[in-house]
Design a protein around this nucleic acid. Structure first.
Lengths: 410, 410
DNA sequence: ATAAATAGTTAAAATGCTTGACAAAGTTTA
DNA sequence: TAAACTTTGTCAAGCATTTTAACTATTTAT
């Protein structure tokens, strides 16, 4: 059963099919031909001729030169027209801001990243995003007014329709601030506002480690820990947009006090913050470690990762412990969600297998065999870019579908 | 973004809309008029005239006598034709088997329940289901051959397309046994095979405590613990059909050894089995309790519940402890899934608030305010019948949609 | 009693698909 | 090398299903 009332507002049958064609072309690596489209969509070749012609007239797609064939007339492969315009993706993290500018084929032509503090509040932060966007655009050699759409990711739960964050665990001062409205006015183009982990999932699904996985969890392990969920091919946001907020799962009721008021939350074990804290504790306890060379209160997760890679046993142990605790939490996620794939991203995930192996081991140990055997756990293929690429995906969606629809009205 | 390729195989536009109309009529309490249907579906009244006439000709729906209006011509309310035929719902639990027979308006006309042991394996169990179905049918005064479709729920992860359970944690001997094929042959009518917790969610969504909640978790607390998920209006089964298997979430890594090989799984704290075990331990420790009157190895969760209701403090404490531990696990579920509503069902949930209050308290304490404030936790409104009613929903879906499609072919 | 409002029906027009024939552009076979 | 075959893509006619717009039906309000 679907328990969901699918129906067809027939006035836009063609529009729906056009958008489906567009998305199939976008997300099929290497492009796709009319015949293949017809097969995937259960439509006839004739119908696709009409739809494809329409899309070519509006300029969003084009024919490639490659002509592959087994026997018979070779098929013409279709692709997104890279000249249909430019978009931007903005990744506002807790401690960094990064911006990508790309064409509608998701080819990145300029990129910038700067340190940042989300706790500075919306006025300061949005100003900073604005100026970095202008810098990045000028580096790409285009005017801001040439951007067709902009995707934005922020580390908080989002009310999609309203374009704002609601009751975010971090992001002080942002609660119910009209982020999308403010940015659309500033940039004079449509803005898609999304949760960062959710964009990570979208990015990895579209161009990364989880291409076309139907059930995917992207775990962002950075300053905090959050999950982005793609379930049955759709972004899952939950009732109030805060699905995937796993940072405050209770791992140990008697653990360290967390900023949220509870004890032993996942974030107190397996975030960048936690890794740094554990390292400082190790130094205080005079454990043998290269980390002693740093000023104690300035040790970062990155220092720990570097030391671990250089063979520092204490650092390795800290990271393995963080991984194991994340594994305990992910085992729960796997039992509950039963995904095809779990992609671990965010700053901490860059450490690599030193961190990921303990995660895999605990998940394997604590999850149902039926769920875990068919599932993969990997690091983000797009690395630091997962979220930015997800933001691009959203921006490109808006841009292409707008163009396609405009043509439709004529 | 949808990241899901919606398209319209145009040959059945009308069929799709017909089915949508049918489901809207089925699941709108008190029925719905043509105009309301038109509004919900973004179609015109004229289109609905045609579709509704079609459905009335096939006999699946009918006009009611109620004519409600504010001003103007009163609307004719439509409802499922209760005379379109009979269906059955089969709930095979770990320790009980229950069967409902109903008409397509989900009005139950006969009902039977017997003790049962799923561990007897498919041959024995399916035989028993077959004979109980025959008994129930004869009590209802209908022939087995009059059943249009039968919904079946079993306590294991299901491969929908194959109609079998795969790697079930309980259900020894059932792995990959062709349950659906076997039953369809036996009963000579279409069978829908589903996970029991999933059916609980469907039942409560359709006719229970969670009417039309878009994001719903049904928690079945019986011999074991499992969850059925309805996310964004769709049943969510996960990559391999084992989504919602929360019985073996690790609550305490140093806890009691579980049948699954790990320690401190949720089921060792918050299942019927666990409650009985804790009661036996209390008796062994000579704690003051009415439970001492029972033969020690025969104490059941039901005995504990009865004692708790009569004011036995030890029994109350055991139940509160089980509830609290379930609450810890559900807090994780709430943070991850962010549902509108959590419905707690299964035998243990019948205990009521003695059990549910500690659940609520722990969830409230450990979940994000943004997720928990808009969410309700309740006991199953349909009580022991949740799963059976869910099975009926599935059976009725098959029955009505078949009839509607048959007519369509003429 | 008449006007206003809302529900439901009908026939013509519009939309967007399928059907079936055909042209185009390759590979395979004789 | 030419003919046969295979597959892709297009076109015009036909068909299914919706919308449009006018109409009828049945109630409440004045």
């Amino acid at each position: 059963m679907s328990t969901y009332f699918h129906y067809i507002p027939t006035q836009n049958v063609k529009s729906i099919n056009k958008h489906a064609v567009l998305d199939l072309i976008r997300f099929t690596p290497g492009g796709i031909s009319r015949v293949q489209l017809a097969q995937r969509m259960s439509l006839t070749r004739a119908a696709l001729t009409v739809i494809v012609n329409d899309l070519m007239e509006s300029g969003v797609i084009r024919e490639t030169n490659s002509r592959l064939s087994n026997a018979g007339r070779p098929a013409i492969t279709l692709e997104i027209n890279p000249q249909s315009g430019f978009v931007a993706g903005v990744d506002m993290g807790a401690t960094h801001l990064s911006i990508l500018i790309a064409n509608c084929a998701a080819h990145v032509i300029a990129e910038k990243e700067v340190p940042f503090n989300i706790a500075d509040g919306p006025t300061v932060c949005l100003d900073r995003a604005d100026s970095l966007l202008r810098e990045t655009a000028s580096q790409a050699g285009i005017e801001l007014s040439n951007l067709l759409a902009i995707g934005v990711g922020v580390p908080g739960p989002i009310m999609s329709e309203a374009g704002m964050v609601v009751a975010p665990p971090i992001m002080p001062g942002w609660d119910r601030y009209p982020i999308r409205a403010s940015l659309e006015k500033r940039w004079n183009c449509p803005v898609s506002l999304n949760n960062d982990a959710e964009l990570g999932a979208v990015g990895e699904w579209a161009y990364g480690a989880a291409r076309s996985a139907a059930n995917l969890a992207y775990i962002k392990v950075g300053t905090g820990v959050g999950a982005g969920l793609l379930l049955d091919g759709h972004i899952y946001r939950g009732a109030t947009g805060s699905a995937g907020e796993i940072g405050h799962l209770t791992i140990d009721p008697n653990g360290t006090l967390c900023t949220c008021g509870n004890r032993g939350c996942l974030e107190t074990f397996a975030s960048g913050t936690a890794i740094a804290r554990m390292a400082r504790e190790a130094v205080v306890k005079n454990q043998p470690t290269q980390l002693s060379q740093f000023e104690r209160d300035r040790i970062t997760a990155r220092n720990v990762a570097d030391a671990a890679r250089r063979g520092d046993l204490t650092a390795q142990q800290i990271i393995a412990e963080a991984g194991a605790q994340l594994g305990v939490a992910l085992a729960g996620l796997v039992n509950l969600i039963n995904p095809n794939m779990v992609v671990v991203g965010g700053g901490v995930a860059q450490i690599g297998d030193l961190f990921l192996e303990p995660v895999r081991r605990e998940v394997k140990r604590r999850s149902l065999p039926g769920s875990v055997n068919t599932m993969q756990i990997t690091t983000a293929l797009l690395g630091r870019r997962s979220i930015g690429m997800g933001a691009l995906v959203q921006a490109i969606s808006i841009a292409l579908h707008r163009i396609a629809d405009e043509k439709n009205l004529n």
